[in-house]
Amino acid sequence: MRRMYFIFLMLCSGLALAQPRIQLSPPQAVVDSVFFTETTTVRLELDYPGVALRYTLDGSPVGSNSSVYKGPLALSQSATVSAKAFHPDFEDSPQVSIAVRSLKYNQPLSITNATPKPAPQYTGAGLSALTDRQKGALNFAATPKAWLGWETDTLRMQLNAPEAGKVNMLVFSLLDNAGAWIMPPAVVKVYDAGEQIGQFETARPEPGGPTQYHFLEVPLKPWSSDTLEVLVLARQLPDWHDGAGRPAWIFLDEILLTQKP
């Protein structure tokens, strides 16, 4: 009987040891302003005793040797703040990221045409919303005037850029929400008088990604005219998605013409 009791205790101990450790929740990243001219402040929050928050400023993976968060981060340059929570008794949290964008080097820009037009339910405040320097919320329904949405394979846009030659990058602020069938486009190409002066291809999305926004940066070669043509090719929803094979929605809330420092 004593032997059976000992075996029972060993089995219970083994089961207890086999239980996976609980994973910490990710910290919340709170930002004063996503777009800024001088400085902005990012705060990381997770209220749990003994938790250490660590971060990077370039979007790289956060590890046990990354900087320890000790207080609000005052930023004067564009950055992607990534953060994770660590605790000796729990699994590390998932990584969370938030991007902020300096407008210090921005140049005037207007959107004169988009074909096709945005979907009727996602017209925002019109094309002017794409150059008003106002960031939409991750919950796009909370800021309906900020986001413009397209369900199309191909989007063509015409941009009026009078400061030709003074800048070298076009930046698209995009939403990524796979659950709502919204993903960054597969390819963005930029043309000046029929000559391609820029292109950017995005990485294939993986399942389980968080709802987030991206700043898609398209480096530009020198150009001379006042008008740029933009070709946006939507991504086909991947095999793991419920809508596999259909074009993902494209959601834009801002386009910036800027100089990469």
Results as ranks from 00 to 15, higher is better:
residue 2 R to C: 08
residue 2 R to P: 05
residue 3 R to Q: 14
residue 3 R to K: 10
residue 8 F to Q: 14
residue 9 L to D: 14
residue 9 L to K: 12
residue 11 L to K: 13
residue 11 L to A: 13
residue 15 L to T: 12
residue 15 L to Y: 14
residue 16 A to D: 14
residue 17 L to C: 15
residue 19 Q to M: 14
residue 19 Q to E: 15
residue 19 Q to V: 14
residue 24 L to S: 11
residue 26 P to M: 07
residue 27 P to E: 11
residue 28 Q to P: 07
residue 29 A to R: 14
residue 29 A to V: 13
residue 33 S to P: 11
residue 35 F to C: 12
residue 42 V to P: 00
residue 42 V to K: 00
residue 43 R to G: 12
residue 43 R to H: 15
residue 47 D to Q: 10
residue 47 D to N: 12
residue 47 D to F: 05
residue 50 G to E: 08
residue 51 V to N: 02
residue 54 R to D: 11
residue 56 T to I: 13
residue 61 P to S: 12
residue 62 V to M: 10
residue 62 V to F: 12
residue 63 G to E: 13
residue 65 N to A: 15
residue 69 Y to C: 05
residue 75 L to E: 05
residue 77 Q to M: 09
residue 81 V to T: 10
residue 82 S to R: 02
residue 90 F to A: 06
residue 91 E to M: 11
residue 91 E to I: 09
residue 91 E to T: 10
residue 94 P to G: 04
residue 94 P to V: 04
residue 96 V to S: 02
residue 97 S to V: 01
residue 97 S to M: 02
residue 97 S to C: 04
residue 98 I to S: 07
residue 99 A to L: 00
residue 99 A to G: 05
residue 99 A to N: 06
residue 103 L to H: 06
residue 104 K to N: 08
residue 106 N to C: 05
residue 116 P to H: 11
residue 127 L to C: 07
residue 127 L to T: 08
residue 128 S to L: 14
residue 130 L to M: 13
residue 132 D to N: 13
residue 132 D to A: 02
residue 145 K to G: 06
residue 146 A to S: 14
residue 147 W to A: 10
residue 148 L to T: 00
residue 150 W to G: 04
residue 151 E to S: 10
residue 155 L to N: 00
residue 155 L to W: 03
residue 158 Q to W: 13
residue 158 Q to C: 12
residue 159 L to S: 10
residue 160 N to T: 12
residue 161 A to K: 09
residue 161 A to E: 09
residue 163 E to S: 12
residue 163 E to P: 03
residue 166 K to Q: 12
residue 166 K to A: 12
residue 170 L to Q: 05
residue 172 F to H: 08
residue 172 F to K: 11
residue 174 L to E: 09
residue 174 L to D: 03
residue 178 A to K: 03
residue 182 I to Y: 00
residue 188 V to Q: 08
residue 192 D to V: 06
residue 192 D to S: 08
residue 196 Q to I: 10
residue 198 G to M: 01
residue 199 Q to R: 14
residue 199 Q to F: 00
residue 200 F to K: 14
residue 202 T to K: 03
residue 202 T to R: 02
residue 203 A to P: 05
residue 203 A to K: 07
residue 204 R to Y: 03
residue 205 P to A: 07
residue 206 E to T: 15
residue 213 Y to D: 13
residue 213 Y to P: 06
residue 215 F to I: 04
residue 217 E to C: 04
residue 220 L to K: 01
residue 220 L to H: 01
residue 220 L to F: 00
residue 220 L to D: 00
residue 221 K to R: 08
residue 221 K to E: 11
residue 222 P to M: 01
residue 222 P to H: 00
residue 231 L to Q: 10
residue 232 V to C: 01
residue 232 V to Y: 02
residue 234 A to Q: 02
residue 234 A to L: 02
residue 239 D to S: 11
residue 239 D to Q: 10
residue 240 W to L: 07
residue 240 W to E: 09
residue 244 A to W: 04
residue 245 G to V: 07
residue 248 A to R: 06
residue 250 I to E: 03
residue 250 I to H: 00
residue 254 E to I: 13
residue 254 E to R: 10
residue 255 I to T: 05
residue 256 L to Q: 09
residue 257 L to A: 06
residue 258 T to G: 00
residue 258 T to I: 07
residue 259 Q to I: 01
residue 261 P to R: 04
